[in-house]
Design a protein around this nucleic acid. Structure first.
Lengths: 188, 188, 188, 188
DNA sequence: AATGAATGAGGGTTCATTCAT
DNA sequence: TATGAATGAACCCTCATTCAT
């Protein structure tokens, strides 16, 4: 793994746990074992690093979640269920003893109202996710019109995000599990 | 309004818009027109101020939302609907051109994983809110057992929180409105 | 002497010897025996400090040179000569083994082309100095018109400034001395 | 133009506009389109580059000003006038909207008191210039002794330098023009 | 002759906090 | 109650320089 990749990886980790603003370049340097000036060789500012790290995360989710789960040729129900399991497993498989919620949702809450660049990145990804869910709903509910499909896709995302907020609060997977079961019941 | 109250009020405002960590004591001093020493006369640290401000907010919501809406003697359906409207109006009536999401949810995302003191405060409130909703569900669905009631109350909160995350992302009330309509349909 | 005054005094000293840009806040802190954050208690930025230090210097020269020498009621010739001696003594009485030239001229050369705020300050002072010399020339040369008087006043300043540049180069008072003699011969 | 020449040329330009110290190697790299290692291949340090750039400038002036103007076989008065016009045209023909004063004088003010190597370079050149002017004065004023000639040559340089300081301050060619006229009147 | 990667010191600045009055 | 002065750690960032290739 190249130095730049290592920096981004550690940044992603720290941003997930602490947020973007509270994560200092000092922490990132230390965690990635890199000299003082090196960060500014690869990134022109902290924000540039934050943006690139975020892009890396979102590209990864585009691949793992949207391409490899939502847009496969498997049966629709299976894809829907796999998405929910992917969300659950993301939390369950964390090494840390603490649940940090959703990496994307956290950034939305921290930055969306303050920084247009981050907001755009995050909104674009969420739109892609919404669209991919909508494609599923279209197959599942042939009687719904486009608008209803889109709105329901958003509602699904809202329920996932909300569950992850409560997971972070309660440090307990139960609410997330329940949300997943409800979603399956409601939409499948 | 006393000096202490004024400080807390401005802190609440800034914390809502920027978060707790990014809000500096300097900003609070300036916004409340108070000298450096004053802050440390009334509060023993930034965290103490943050906690007291949060307590103030939660006490207010205990009153406005839980006591004056959820636990009145009005018909159950009406109370449920009023809660949702209260949530909606809180956003709609903001003077700012920007939507900052849920003051409580924001703090959860920012601090719950890092700081036990804040987490406890927030979790206690969310539990009270959940319990109050559960009381409503108990009346609405006599066939549900206690556990189901509790879980469904949590799901309702999750859907609200999630919608507010998406509101913050999209800066658009539509998702919240849709969530409210869905909640009414699902639970009433 | 108050802390703020001490800071300004040391800043002036360091700026004179090194220039504004090369003088670091660290040096100023150390020289004035002041803690890290204290500078920013009294000054909102390095530039603010630099500007205030410059204003202090110019105000002092307004007093010492323009008021107490050029605008007294002494005979014109005496005043003219005293100004030149004041310039000479300023260099001669420096404790340092090195000649640093003119504090004002140095700042002009360093900053006038780059920073409008410094330029304005310096230009205003130089205009006041020019005007005060012009008043003398008016008395000395009744046949000169206003424009000639103004231009000749500027030429006098140019010769002084130029001599101080060469003093800095040669580290030798001789050129300055010669300039002063020539100026007396030419204008008295 | 070789890589090394290009680096020196850009360095000269930046040093003229900003000074030596404030000019960063990064700026020089960018302006001359050269990689980091290139700089340290041709020059062993920033100072080495600065000195070589200065030497290049001074060698050029030795040629253009001292050889091709002051030491020709033209009539003395003509040579004296051409020198002054050369100084004036140097300013007038600058592409930039800003007047940066004298490249040599600027370096004297910035560095002469701090750095012996730069000082020596600059002093040697100024001595050569002085000597060349002295040769003219010797022809113009046969009654002057060697010492007077030397001193008057220095005064001429002082007046030129001083005018260029005021030009930089006022961003106006008028003072320089007036100085030139005065010099012609005084010495021709 | 040329490249990009790495270093560490130091730059200006902001911060929460404490102390004296 | 209230003030302003002082502290030092840590922030993001830029710099000249060096090293490996």
């Amino acid at each position: 793994m190249s130095t730049k990749e290592r920096i981004i990886e550690k940044t992603l980790e720290l941003m997930y746990q602490q947020g973007y603003l509270p994560t200092s370049l000092g922490q990132i340097m230390e965690a990635s074992g890199v000299g003082k000036g090196q960060l500014y060789y690869y990134f022109k500012s902290k924000k540039d690093l934050g943006l690139q790290a975020t892009e890396t995360l979102l590209a990864r989710w585009d691949q793992e979640l949207i391409e490899e789960i939502l847009r496969t040729t498997k049966p629709v129900q299976e894809r829907f269920a796999e998405m929910l399991e992917w969300v659950y497993n993301f939390q369950d498989q964390q090494d840390s003893a603490t649940f940090y919620g959703c990496p994307v949702g956290n950034l939305i809450v921290e930055l969306a109202a303050q920084d247009g660049d981050f907001r755009r990145l995050l909104a674009d990804f969420m739109n892609r996710w919404t669209a991919a869910i909508a494609e599923l709903l279209e197959l599942l509910h042939e009687d719904w019109d486009q608008e209803k499909i889109h709105r329901q896709a958003q509602q699904i995302l809202a329920r996932i995000q909300g569950s992850l907020v409560l997971l972070k609060l309660n440090q307990d997977l139960q609410v997330l599990q329940e949300a997943i079961e409800d979603l399956k019941q409601n939409y499948l």
